[in-house]
């Protein structure tokens, strides 16, 4: 599978820390250049190609401007695709203790809803979410892809838990 190079398209170095201003500037410049309205003279194939380039550009921009999506994308470039269940190249499986904790926290969430401190529960999950995201980014700076991917998978489980907290309030 060929992974599109979002960094190259937006003229940015392939790294986890990016220059946001440079990203915005380059995106706007290319968005004008690739805009399908600008290729009115082109034939059908030319028009389609313009639409495709615009769509690739938007995908690149959406991926790179969001720190989590950018981190997940860097893992994918590094050989670990979080959307895949492949044991080697897919999302790393979490350990038993982590999954057990995710189950037990749902049970504590039910207690917290039933007269407990739901805000404290939410605060804990939010702090952990920030912590694993920060660790994932730090690991990517050191080019430790697998370790970063593990943190990003933990983040997805925590995000799911947070969604449940929010859905019930």
């Amino acid at each position: 599978m060929i992974i599109p190079d979002h960094f190259a398209l937006l003229s940015l170095p392939r790294q986890v820390d990016i220059d946001r201003d440079a990203l915005e500037a380059r995106y706007l410049e290319l968005a004008r250049e690739f805009h399908p309205d600008r290729v009115v003279a082109a034939d059908g194939a030319g028009q389609r190609a313009a639409v495709e380039r615009s769509s690739e550009l938007n995908e690149a921009y959406r991926t790179l401007r969001d720190p989590v999506r950018r981190a997940e994308y860097l893992c994918k470039l590094g050989g670990i695709d979080l959307e895949s269940t492949d044991p080697k190249q897919g999302a790393p499986a979490m350990g038993h203790a982590f999954l057990l904790d995710m189950i037990e926290r749902r049970e504590r969430l039910a207690v917290a809803r039933d007269g407990g401190d739901i805000e404290a529960f939410r605060g804990d999950v939010e702090r952990e979410l920030s912590a694993v995201t920060a660790t994932a980014i730090a690991e990517l700076r050191r080019e430790r892809i697998r370790s970063a991917a593990e943190q990003l998978v933990a983040r997805r489980y925590l995000q799911r838990l947070l969604d449940e907290v929010d859905a019930g309030s």
Binding site: E83, T85, A91, L99, M102, I103, R156, Y157, L158
Partner: peptide
């Protein structure tokens, strides 16, 4: 048995 789906964060016991 406790398992999880890493892509979406679902957990099952």
């Amino acid at each position: 048995g406790i398992v999880g789906a890493p892509a979406c964060g679902d957990v099952m016991k």
